[in-house]
């Protein structure tokens, strides 16, 4: 897997200047800044960033400071894709009218801004085929407002709006299969990624930047505060999400599904697949599941069903 000869390695990346600068106020152990820094390792030239309202936006731009070494704009919660469309339109107009070279545009949105409130704007931008990379950093709840359930929160997960009570135990509905929905828009590139597999993520980001038309990169983004895990476990949990097949790594290039990296290896050697309980165990939001055998079995069945579905789509 490569993107036009783009071949990131640790030495090269470590020498590359970071475009999200230190000093921001994201939590210790937050995946969002790791995802963003990895994505920005993939930029190929002048780039403009558009950000939805959320933790990332709030914590990186507290006036009069900014962590962004790129031109950056935040407008509102539900409109990151539409705002990006506007930037892209300006790029096209300047290219046509003044022969200016186009800048790349990257939009960052959380799961609330993507699955829920920003879904219409996203779908519209995809249908218009606007040329930008949309990066979803998915921490599976409204973390900026303090851990409320979203369309991305998995079944039975605890959040402050899906508490574990005597009648209901966590969220009672499934996580929306956003990648399949986005892929159904017939856009040139859709991919999932985990910051634990940095090379896979960076190459996918680069592909998303390079394609003509919209690209969508869905990164699992652990949240120690909302997921109730130790700050030192961040990358380990991001890895377990993939190793348990809770969050398979795949990409959809011009409609063709393909497993990548660790997920591809697991498909070839099923014995590498870990039980979902290993992903759940370090996370306080799932602690009630681990105490309930039938609940745990149901979660495992759901993971297995989704994994089989993705494998089938990927021809494995």
């Amino acid at each position: 897997m490569n993107a036009g000869g783009f071949n990131p390695n640790l030495k090269g990346l470590s020498q590359q200047e970071d475009l999200l600068l230190p000093g921001h106020r994201l939590c210790a152990g937050c995946s969002a800044s790791i995802v963003v820094r990895q994505v920005l390792k993939a930029v190929r030239g002048p780039t403009i960033v558009v950000n939805a309202t959320g933790c990332l936006e709030v914590a990186t731009t507290i006036y009069p400071y900014t962590s962004w070494a790129l031109p950056w704009i935040h407008s509102a919660f539900e409109n990151v894709a539409a705002t990006a469309s506007g930037v892209v339109a300006a790029e096209r107009a300047f290219e046509r009218k003044k022969s200016e070279p186009k800048s790349d545009v990257i939009a960052f949105g959380g799961d609330g801004g993507t699955y829920d409130i920003g879904f219409q704007a996203l779908s519209g931008a995809l249908e218009r085929y606007d040329d930008f990379l949309y990066v979803l950093y998915d921490n599976e709840a409204y973390m900026n407002t303090g851990i409320q359930r979203s369309g991305s929160t998995p079944k039975y997960a605890w959040t402050t709006t899906t508490p574990v009570g005597s009648v209901e135990a966590g969220k009672m509905e499934y996580k929306k299969p956003i990648d399949l929905i986005v892929a159904a828009h017939d856009i040139p590139y859709v991919a999932t990624a985990s910051p634990a597999y940095w090379r896979d993520l960076i190459v996918k980001a680069r592909k998303g930047i390079e394609v003509d038309g919209p690209a969508f990169l869905h990164a699992i983004s652990t949240c120690d505060r909302g997921w109730r895990h130790d700050t030192s476990d961040t990358i380990e949990i991001a890895r377990l999400a993939v190793e348990t097949c809770y969050f398979p790594l795949f990409e959809v290039e011009n409609g063709e599904f393909k497993l990548t990296g660790r997920s591809r290896a697991i498909a070839k050697r099923p014995e590498l697949k870990k039980p979902v309980s290993e992903f759940l165990k370090p996370q306080g939001r799932f602690s009630h599941i681990l105490k309930n055998q039938s609940m745990l079995e149901e979660v495992q069945e759901n993971v297995d069903r989704y994994w089989e579905r993705i494998k089938k789509l990927c021809g494995e």
Partner: peptide, 27 residues
Amino acid sequence: QAEYVRVESEHSAMSACVGASARGART
């Protein structure tokens, strides 16, 4: 030679105007 973004709602219309205008476009 203008770009006309046929948005899917007025909310997105004004949002796209914000993006375009911030980028320097006469919008």
